[in-house]
Design a protein around this nucleic acid. Structure first.
Lengths: 408, 408
DNA sequence: GTTATTTATTTTAGCGCCTAAAGTAAATCA
DNA sequence: TGATTTACTTTAGGCGCTAAAATAAATAAC
């Protein structure tokens, strides 16, 4: 409710300039003004400050002569070295660490296999600190500072409290991890659900620019979801919103990993598909409760090749998915439902019954104009999203930091 | 993206003052400053303007001497006469018109029985214009101007486009009603779903002050819902979000008024309950597809008195409601689910199975900390909410209006 | 090769808003 | 009656923004 004075105006405008530069690349001052609705005099003033702070630099004139009459534009761009951010993705038995520069480019990426389920809360903190430290040692020569860290975690997290409430990757609960990292690295730490990171990458795609309200469904070993309302992830009361996988298809239906019955996940997740298939089909050996990518591909292949049992299983999964999506349409009426995740490999085998189920469940008025689409799966999206979110969350501080540094 | 200059700051602060006065009643300048985080010098400046514009007045000193030392506070309060707003609630065969003053008090209320289903789009517009005209003639002596109109409509509306997309009260679709009223009455016209009006009244109650994300379920002839996210109604892609009644309980289950099967509404709405009961029980005569309040009360009474068939019907309804709420918890994870509407009369008979169904459907982590409560039904809430929303939407203009009036 | 024209950026002048601090008003307390 | 306390108003000064003027750096035209 506090309406801080005219000063916030400058702050907001400065952030707007930085963000414009981040997602448009080098831009001239006039254009920055036009894009953000401020006068170019103000842009001059802002860019002078940023230049002094070392956050931006003027790009030398183009070698191939710029076109048109008049004084040529002087493009300004973010100084990539001004800061870096680290995103760590925590999933079952795997940790990925990615470093991004101030412009948002990925500069470094590493994967580690770790048996996450055997870690204690303390082990986890130590492990993360080690990995971040190592990355900093290696890279901080090039960067002025580490501006922020994003933890992208599978499971239920409370971003506000910086607590991992529950994750399938961990055997403990309620880990207050953010505070510890903040203290250790003196930078802002963002804790996010992995699905939200992915969704924010997808939302940035031009294809989906006109979809302020979108729902992203992630099919895989489990089923995740992220809801963006006006482009920002919806978190709910305690960060555990958007558990699409555990919304209901059939009361008293198939058994779900959560212990209850009839969840969508109990029909359309990898483990559910493989479980149903293992009864009838001759499939590659392996832990059928935790099917590998190879196992799943074999199953998908069977369905594609016309095996009736496999087809029946995917059809039922499609129906469950369809009912779930019908509920989403009724309750959220989003502009777009996007289906992705490693499980999209089997989407073609589910699509027909899914659409059929949606049409059966909802009259046209409620079906509305929502686009329902699938989208190829890129496992690196999580960290790309994390880096983007960390930068966004952090450049208020970056600004402050370099101001005070200048003054000293 | 435009970041309008320092001028908006004054505008925002002025609105904050007006709103504080509206929901706190008379307040002194110092307190207005403290409550809104602005200096009292600024409040002086703002209140001087508002005084000149006739939007507020100083309250004469209290007769029972104010307590404490020091110069006594001079309370300022909104001038109730400065403006009025009209809220019209449109439901099946009934129109309610309420007039509220600038402070938000209801000054006048009238009900009309109209066979809404036989109206053409034009008839409707003419009817509304007449009623508003009559109210204005009668009341505008006392008010400086009509500041705004809120149309609270059952059904799917597009607030942005000012179009009633579909309403059970009307036999036509896509009525562009707002523009016509704006032109006729030269004031802003707000088109809202009735459930959103009710929800915003409920959200203002101190009991629910700490529930930024709440879901209100309205049981009645049909089943409606409103979702408030951070206190503002969520609208979805085309205003038809929050169709809880048509989310699914049982694929291929009971027939719903929407024409599909298995909707929650097909189990827990008045018509569904009565339909199920009419087969087995001896109930008051009447149109059993559109049961009256008396008919429903008789049915509820049977269940309360222990009639096993009636109890079974309410139990099944409770189960359907429970599954629907479980889905809401999984997908929205709100702070609060509030159940109201005329149908709460039978809530006691549904409660046990509802809670049981929720517990069966969701593990504790997903159940979360959401409060699930019922709330007595007050049929006048809709218009109270409409008036509050209309005032809120309109006092930017009121400000402008009286500024220019002063200048002339 | 000047000179006019065009476009970009910077500087200047001035306005509106806000706040802190000083000044004034209106009570109670002693 | 004067000291004290609290509320409100006035004053002085700062910040940020914009429009307009000034400057800069090109191309086009002769």
């Amino acid at each position: 409710m506090a309406l801080p004075s005219t000063e916030t105006s400058r702050h907001d405008n400065t952030l707007a300039v930085i963000r414009t530069l981040r997602d448009q690349g080098p831009v001239a001052r006039v254009d920055l003004g036009a894009l953000n609705g401020i006068s170019s005099a103000t842009v001059t003033s802002i860019s002078t400050e940023l230049l002094q702070q070392g956050l931006i630099s003027e790009r030398p004139p183009e070698t191939p002569r710029p076109t048109g009459r008049g004084r040529p534009k002087t493009l300004i761009e973010l100084n990539a070295q001004a800061a870096c951010v680290v995103c760590i993705k925590l999933s079952i038995n795997e940790i990925q660490l990615v470093v991004g520069d101030f412009t948002g480019q990925v500069r470094h990426s590493e994967h580690h296999t770790v048996s996450t389920l055997t870690l204690s809360a303390d082990d986890l903190a130590v492990l993360l600190e080690e990995k971040i430290d190592a990355a900093c040692d290696q890279l901080l020569g090039g960067f002025q500072r580490l501006a922020g860290i994003c933890l992208a975690v599978q499971g239920v997290v409370s971003s506000q409290n910086g607590t991992i409430i529950w994750s399938p990757a961990l055997s403990f609960r309620n880990a207050r991890i953010s505070a510890r990292l903040t203290e250790r690295f003196h930078c802002s730490v963002l804790l996010e659900n992995d699905a939200n990171c992915i969704a924010s990458v997808l939302a940035a795609k031009p294809d989906y620019a006109d979809c302020p309200n979108m729902v992203v469904i992630m099919l895989g070993y489990g089923i995740g979801m992220s809801v963006l309302i006006n482009g920002v992830p919806y978190l709910g009361a305690n960060g555990s919103a958007a558990e699409f996988g555990h919304s209901k298809y059939q009361p008293d239906g198939a058994l779900c990993a959560c212990g209850r019955r009839g969840c969508i996940e109990a029909y359309a997740s990898d483990y559910a598909l493989y479980r149903a298939a293992a009864e009838h089909l001759n499939l590659p050996a392996g832990d059928s409760a935790h099917p590998s990518e190879q196992q799943m591909q074999a199953l998908t292949q069977l369905a594609m090749n016309g095996d009736p049992a496999a087809q029946r299983i995917y059809a039922e999964a499609g129906r469950a998915l369809g009912i779930g999506i019908a509920n989403i349409l009724a309750l959220f009426n989003p502009d777009l439902v996007l289906i992705t995740g490693s499980g999209v490999r089997g989407f073609d085998a589910m699509q027909a019954t899914m659409h059929h189920a949606i049409d059966e469940a909802l009259v046209a008025e409620l079906r509305g104009t929502t686009r329902i689409e699938s989208c190829a799966w890129d496992r690196d999206m999580t960290c790309m999203g994390g880096i983007a979110m960390a930068l966004n969350a952090t450049d208020g501080e970056t600004l402050l930091e370099s101001q005070t540094a200048r003054e000293a």
